[in-house]
Amino acid sequence: MSQALHLQVKNMTMAYADTIIQQNLEFSVKRSEIFIIMGGSGCGKSTLLRHLIGLMQPASGEVVIDDINIWDSSVEERTRTISRSGVLYQSGALFSSMTLGENIALPLSEYTSLASALIEKIVSYKLSLVGLAGFEDYYPSEISGGMRKRAGLARAMALDPDILFIDEPSAGLDPISAKLLDRLILELRDSQGTTIVMVTHELESIFSVGDSSIFLDTDEKTMIASGPPKQLLKESSDPRVLNFLTRSV
């Protein structure tokens, strides 16, 4: 598992029935890199993420994770590959009928044969990482949106995934919480070497944590730029990309 490229997308087209969302997508994500998918609202960022985590099948093209083409392999292999990744959904997607502790324990008890005492320790460690120590017995409806998001991050990391997909981490958070979440994500990458693929249009996040990025455009229906965000800001000549990155209209 030491190959440099962690995730590759080859000439992929995404479509709902006959409506093409994006086409000719071609990019790769290096190991331990924070990769940003950006673009305006409705350009298909979240749809792209759903393709990467195996929730939707591409109309054509390949998604390759760890050298395994996830749509050209058996169901078991696909499930195994995808279960090695963690996903943080936009609103946390915590199971509302379970406490935070049970939410985080679920992947551990489903995918490992650990004793429940050990699972409990891992749960409280994961919660302490996201700053929610002692909140095991709370239900998602009893905590704030920012806490839900951090708890969702704790659940996404429950199995020590190699790759973490994050959909709009700062949506609906105040600037300080958003920044703290960014810092947390950065810290997790630096200490564990987790690859992170993140959908966001928050400029602050894009520049502070992004190592590499692609820019999707609604009208062109494809990616119109790719590279490190700071370099894009300096070198891109495309007015759409520049307007986005400088927040000008």
């Binding site: 460690y125 302490s128 990482l129 700053g131 929610l132 120590a133 002692g134 909140f135 095991e136 017995d137 709370y138 947390l184 810290e187 997790l188 630096d190 200490s191 564990q192 070497g193």
Partner: peptide
Amino acid sequence: PQGVSRLLNLAYAVPERKGARR
């Protein structure tokens, strides 16, 4: 290892809020 000590710092960064545990 550096990663381990960073994670430890992170885990102890926010002390358990008093009265949070039920």
